[in-house]
């Protein structure tokens, strides 16, 4: 007996812990996976179920402002599932057009971010080591200040008596200020500006892996620099393009702050609708239905993202 004890004492601490979990039926691998699983369960799945539940209930002037989904009275369980909120979404063209506008704005913003971000990512990936780190820092640097503050700064730049109009009028290029604030243009500027790093970073991560000898080989085989880009660099960076585009597109669809601050009354994005339903109308069930619908609209691109990342992983 005492022999066994000394043996256990001699075991490293980590092995003792592993032994304990093994005895209760958990392998170390399961333990490692358990933590993120638990996290997702508590902070993603449960709130999702709550929202889904509210979306199926009826609105009421009460606290909370909806009727319970089930009642247990006199030994009878009454479950009321109200899909009227979803039907309402399809009936009122407001929601439909807000979804379309959100997707359009997010789509174009993604395209512009790609157009601006690709050359930047390419330049950074091809820069000498020391410059590269500085350039990457510059891309990440805006995150060090508040997002809200940066959007407010754009108001200062874009407004009628703002920096751009001031400069143009001082130079004598225009006589009257251009109206940029509270237009879709301002929303595009805001979204592209805010989400550009999310486009650049995955593109950079992809492009920096690109083997330079492949470009040399293409050039050696008679491809002009443009042809080399088209036939080698671009197809090999597709996973990066996918990842970056989805990282911009997905949050842009649900964006609320930017259209609220920079957009005008015509800018109808789904995030703004959500806000209005929740806080102005206090119609939680409809707001929840909007949120759930939006989630399903976004599930498709999220799945695409996962596939793109997988493809990227296999390639390297």
């Amino acid at each position: 007996m005492s022999d066994k004890k000394t043996f256990v004492d001699r075991m490293p601490f980590s092995q003792q812990i592993a032994g304990f979990f093994a005895r209760i039926g958990l392998s170390p691998r399961a333990m490692v996976i358990a933590i993120p699983t638990l996290w997702l369960l508590i902070f993603f799945l449960i709130p999702f179920v709550v929202v889904a539940k509210i979306s199926l209930s009826e609105a009421a002037i009460a606290r909370p402002p909806y009727l319970p989904l089930w009642e247990f009275k006199d030994g009878i369980l009454n479950v009321t599932l109200n899909i009227g909120n979803y039907i309402f979404l399809t009936e009122d063209p407001l929601y439909y057009s807000a979804f379309i506008e959100s997707i359009t704005i997010a789509g174009f913003s993604t395209f512009f971010a790609l157009l601006i971000g690709y050359p930047m990512a390419y330049m950074i990936a091809r820069a000498p080591d020391r410059t590269r780190n500085i350039l990457l820092m510059l891309v990440i640097l805006p995150f060090w200040s508040s997002f809200l503050l940066r959007v407010y700064a754009w108001i200062g730049i874009l407004k009628t008596k703002g920096l751009i109009n001031g400069a143009l009028m001082w130079l004598g290029i225009i006589d009257d200020p251009i109206v940029m604030m509270q237009t879709d243009f301002a929303v595009y500027v805001g979204i592209v500006y805010t989400y550009l790093p999310f486009m650049i970073l995955p593109l950079y991560a992809n492009l920096v892996k690109l083997d330079e000898s492949l470009l040399e080989a293409a050039s050696d085989l008679g491809a002009s620099p443009f042809m080399t880009f088209l036939t080698i660099t671009l197809p090999l960076s597709l996973p990066g393009i996918f990842a970056g585009s989805l990282l911009v597109f997905i949050p842009a669809v649900g964006e609320f702050v930017i259209p609220q601050l920079l957009g005008g009354p015509d800018t109808l994005m789904i995030g703004k609708i959500l806000w209005n339903e929740f806080f102005s109308n206090r119609d939680w069930p409809v707001a929840s239905a909007v949120a759930i619908a939006m989630l399903f609209v976004l599930v498709i691109p999220v799945m695409l993202l996962q596939k793109a990342q997988q493809a990227d992983g296999e390639q390297s």
């Binding site: 000898s213 040399e216 080989a217 293409a218 050696d220 085989l221 008679g222």
Partner: peptide
Amino acid sequence: LPPHARPTNMMFQSYALFPH
């Protein structure tokens, strides 16, 4: 003359085959 205009071809040490 840039590489793509020269009458030479090169076989690279890493082979540099296009993976896609």
